[in-house]
Simulated assay, not measured.
Amino acid sequence: MLLSTSTTLLTFDSMVMSLKKALAKVLVSYYAFAGEVVSNSVGEPELLCNNRGVDFVEAAADVELQCINFYNPDESVERKLVPKKKHGVLAIQVTSLKCGGIVVACTFDHRIADAYSTNMFLVSWAEMAQSTKPIKPKTITTTNKPCFRRSLLSPRHPGSIHPSLDDMYIPISKLPPPSATTTKPLLS
């Protein structure tokens, strides 16, 4: 099915191409999403920014948008809208629907980015994909530009715990044993 705007016809292929071009441009700033998580020499997970890329899947569903139950999509599309993340940080699936609409779904590694940071990435990607003007590096708004400055976390050196916290918790072993007369069911 063809969707039209004032000057161009939008097909599934043209929308996917636009999404891919915008994704490539946004990944310049959000380069961590194009990497992969590997084990370092001591077996800890480590982000390898190797420009691996993003798993991008194109799919088709024989269902109309109005027939998808988004509260329980398994009923109508049987878990086929969300991509399986294999090795990279981010996996994307664009699914064409019978009515001509599309669904864009993402899966990402929560060890690399939280939901807020991923949302900033998605907003930047959407802005880039909707742009009808040539994309310039400053197109990403400053509120959506990522920040990888680790110094902002400023942990305590050396780590310390205030002594007042020592009395806040009592080990179970220090509690007196319950007596038989005080033990009552909580609900009667």
Rank of each mutant, 00 (worst) to 15 (best):
S6Q: 11
W125L: 09
H157E: 14
E46V: 11
A32S: 12
V77R: 09
H110L: 06
L152H: 14
A180C: 04
L10M: 02
L152T: 13
L81G: 07
V38F: 06
P146Q: 14
T181G: 02
Y169N: 00
L23S: 02
I170E: 10
G35S: 06
F70S: 14
V82Y: 04
E36M: 15
S179D: 13
H162I: 02
R52G: 11
A129E: 02
K86V: 03
A180W: 00
A126R: 05
I68N: 12
D55E: 12
G101P: 05
P158F: 10
T118N: 14
K138W: 03
H162R: 03
L65E: 15
V57A: 14
I68F: 13
C106A: 04
P185G: 13
V89Y: 10
F12I: 03
D166E: 14
C49E: 10
P45W: 13
C67Q: 07
M1C: 08
Y31D: 00
P137S: 09
K86R: 03
M120I: 12
L122F: 13
A61R: 13
S29Q: 12
T132D: 01
V89F: 11
E75C: 08
P83T: 00
I170S: 05
S164V: 08
L97I: 06
V26E: 00
H110Q: 12
K145T: 02
F56L: 14
M15S: 01
C147K: 04
S4M: 10
P73D: 03
E44V: 10
I92W: 05
P177W: 00
T132W: 01
C99Y: 03
V63E: 08
K21F: 04
V94W: 00
N72P: 07
P155C: 06
V82C: 02
N50D: 07
S18A: 06
